[in-house]
Design a protein around this nucleic acid. Sequence first.
DNA 1: ATGAAAGCGCTAACAG
DNA 2: CTGTTAGCGCTTTCAT
Lengths: 341, 341
Amino acid sequence: MTKSNISIKELASILGFSITTVSRVLNGKAEQYRIKKETESKIQETAKRLNYTPNQFARSLKLDKSETIGVIVPDISNPFFAEIFKNIERGLKQHGYAVFVGDSNDNTELEIDLIKHFVARKVDGLVIAPVGISSTHLSQVFKTGIPLVSIDRSFKNVDFPAVTSNNFDSAKEATIELLKNGHRNIALIQGLNQSQPNTDRVNGFIQAMKEWDIHPDKYSIVGEGFSIENGFYQTDRLLNSANPPTAIFALSNLIALGALKAISQNGQTIPNDISLLTFDEQAYSAFLNTPMTTIEQNKVEMGNMAVKLLIDQICGRKPKIGSIVQIHSKMHLRESIKKIN
Amino acid sequence: MTKSNISIKELASILGFSITTVSRVLNGKAEQYRIKKETESKIQETAKRLNYTPNQFARSLKLDKSETIGVIVPDISNPFFAEIFKNIERGLKQHGYAVFVGDSNDNTELEIDLIKHFVARKVDGLVIAPVGISSTHLSQVFKTGIPLVSIDRSFKNVDFPAVTSNNFDSAKEATIELLKNGHRNIALIQGLNQSQPNTDRVNGFIQAMKEWDIHPDKYSIVGEGFSIENGFYQTDRLLNSANPPTAIFALSNLIALGALKAISQNGQTIPNDISLLTFDEQAYSAFLNTPMTTIEQNKVEMGNMAVKLLIDQICGRKPKIGSIVQIHSKMHLRESIKKIN
DNA sequence: ATGAAAGCGCTAACAG
DNA sequence: CTGTTAGCGCTTTCAT
């Protein structure tokens, strides 16, 4: 239904030049084909005056590329993904791409569906924050030759590049912060088991404990999802257990929110009764009654790197097999950790 | 660079039918052209087997429509817009559209730019959460025949439809809640002056005051932006003024966050020292030290309605001039308002 | 019940 | 320095 604009053909006939010449000028190839300066400026000027815009479909059909990228996230209403996305969109736009978004709603079927959809529309590349654990569908598209980068989550034994946070190191660093403050009986509330970021974080936690010679009997690892409910349930259970922890390490902001609720319902306060530390800096983190110590993933860098890795592929620079770029996170030390002896 | 799929031409030659026949079957027009059942099923079957997918560009070029919608938001990392967007994307996908997103970064120039970009890509329609106060560029595209609906903000004297919250009514209702609890000296901290939602909310507030016969000298309206900084600055000022308010009504979640900080820095607590009420329900609203009373806009309904209004236009149902659909908001009464006498 | 052929708007190989 | 022309993959008018 879009109102049809002027075509290159009409433009040519109005100007009295051939289609080719017009096309060349409009594609910045005047120099290359030694087109007269006068001709060039005349064409440029009339094109502008008549508000000529090239028909993308004809272009894409001819060139077999769309100048379009598909981005898929598990949940765009999650600020973490929204912020990453914002940076990806900005970067891609600067490179002249329009971006399709799909929200997979944390559902692999939907993710596969979206990929097909985008492939049918001949996107020049794909940036995907994958739902989960399986990656075969991703390898499949990548093998058909579509540039691809995965973000937030990576996979083993896979050809396409990924950008993630340094989950292992930052979890370890955060744990050490707890240890330095005298905590030993620490409870880690984890997110989705088996997902790569969760595994890395858990391993970082365990490594710190190992290095400080804390016996596994001393601490606990519980939980099974990045949700408020999981955070609430586990914290409530921990607080009412025989040997409640002195500190809780939550692996996501939602888990922390659930923990907050359980702590307050149990009549306890942070950090007097219990210390709390969490992944994911949020706008409100510093504004909670007790400003929260958090680990902030660098969403700007992650987005930028994803764009770079994608553009590299599009320009024919093949990624090193299994290349995973880790972006450094940053800890915000605030008042939710109590020093004990 | 996308790996070229099989074309209708190849398909035809493999099958031994003409391109025309194949095209007809694949477009579900077998019946209409009385194509033999046998022929039809043979074509369908091979198409599926060879994994044929039509080339969208060729289709779009021929049909002059893209089955694509452009959506523009001022800030996708703002959960309010992200959630609305999520619903829009879902609805549009169900109608077979792919959706381009643009983030205007609260900048009208960028918004105009994105519109041009999307128009050049011949989107079949546009959903825009406009940055601001001017709407001439919107009227312009709409006049060229591109279906358009604006969301969150509406404009006067404009032909395209809009969906917003019932800002006036919900602000009035919220104010009355404060009044019923005995508050008179209320400070309203507003957002972007002159923007339609802000104006409506301020007017709702004033109307409530009028109906309760509260003289304008009693209350105050301050502030000039939907930001944390504005919330902090104004609250700090109010708390240290000669006649501090007993309640603050914040017109956005960010303003409330700033207020929270100022209140805590001044050594005061909610609701003992001061009551607080705010627009925008957030994941953390109920988890703050004092669970916050909020006004939640119905983002699901807003998104769905925007999709409906757009599809209506695409299907040729012209919108009533100046039609603005208002979606009802909902108040969450929690513990941040103190009853005083 | 099926096909031939034109044409959507553009680029690029080939031809001066 | 500029032009002619083929063809990208599809839909559709006109023929048969």
